[in-house]
Write a protein that binds this DNA or RNA. Sequence first.
DNA 1: TATTGTTATACTCTATAACTATA
DNA 2: TATAGTTATAGAGTATAACAATA
Lengths: 147, 147
Amino acid sequence: MSRDDDARAVWHSLTQLFISDDNQRRFPAIAEGEDVTVRLMHAILDIDPASPIPMKQLARQWYCDASNVTSIVDGLEERGLARRDPSAHDRRVKLVGLTDAGAAMRERIVERLSDPPSVLTSLTGAELKTLRTILGKAAGRLEAPRG
Amino acid sequence: MSRDDDARAVWHSLTQLFISDDNQRRFPAIAEGEDVTVRLMHAILDIDPASPIPMKQLARQWYCDASNVTSIVDGLEERGLARRDPSAHDRRVKLVGLTDAGAAMRERIVERLSDPPSVLTSLTGAELKTLRTILGKAAGRLEAPRG
DNA sequence: TATTGTTATACTCTATAACTATA
DNA sequence: TATAGTTATAGAGTATAACAATA
């Protein structure tokens, strides 16, 4: 049981927990509850309410074409969840920021996404405390935390 | 710090680890490496190589329309990854099973999905061992493990 | 009659290419 | 000339409705 074996086993379990059909179904369910599509929900999670972001940067972050970002931000704007403002430094660039309504929806989504599935709540209190410490440490190392 | 707080914090970290853009990008990358689409890859993961499953049951499991299952299984069959056989007990029912090629691809996908991201490998050996034990216990409680 | 699966069809999501406006 | 973003358009994925075969 090497260190690499342990890391693989951990990631395998974590992946199973996450891609289980029950869990995957939560995303559409939460999106539906907010009356947005799943892609708009993901977009909202990726926009920091405190700092508007250029469209181009979103395209890089999502590994998708720029035209797609146009369509997504259109959807957010139509629903009053985001706003486009030209950059003061380069008028070609448009900065996308969440409106108050968008930021509020984002908070609700993050809240609901944190609802733990039953497989987790069936662990003991001590186990949960241990997981909290270690996983918190790992998640803290992510570049751009989503929510 | 209640037990519920701990469970929420754990799930929140786990969700962050999993829906990070870097990690989400792994699915298309692995699928591309196998020359299948992401939806076919997910389908392969959800079919137990040891026991063919009725189309209707896949539709329930994936929370999607039956016509969609027809289209997905068509795609798998065209690539020689799965096969449809009428049930011996009810000739309306078609059982979907993986071919040898499909089962082999499934193993490769599971293998690659288990590659741990760098945020995990940066944990200590003791932390990984602890995570392995606890998460393995939780994942073992899932109904239909994928891979 | 009810159920399993298929076909026809429309809508959403995503990518490519051509375009506009700034730099 | 190059870059940020948009528009037009085509292809994949998904849902609804009508249908065929079987129960």
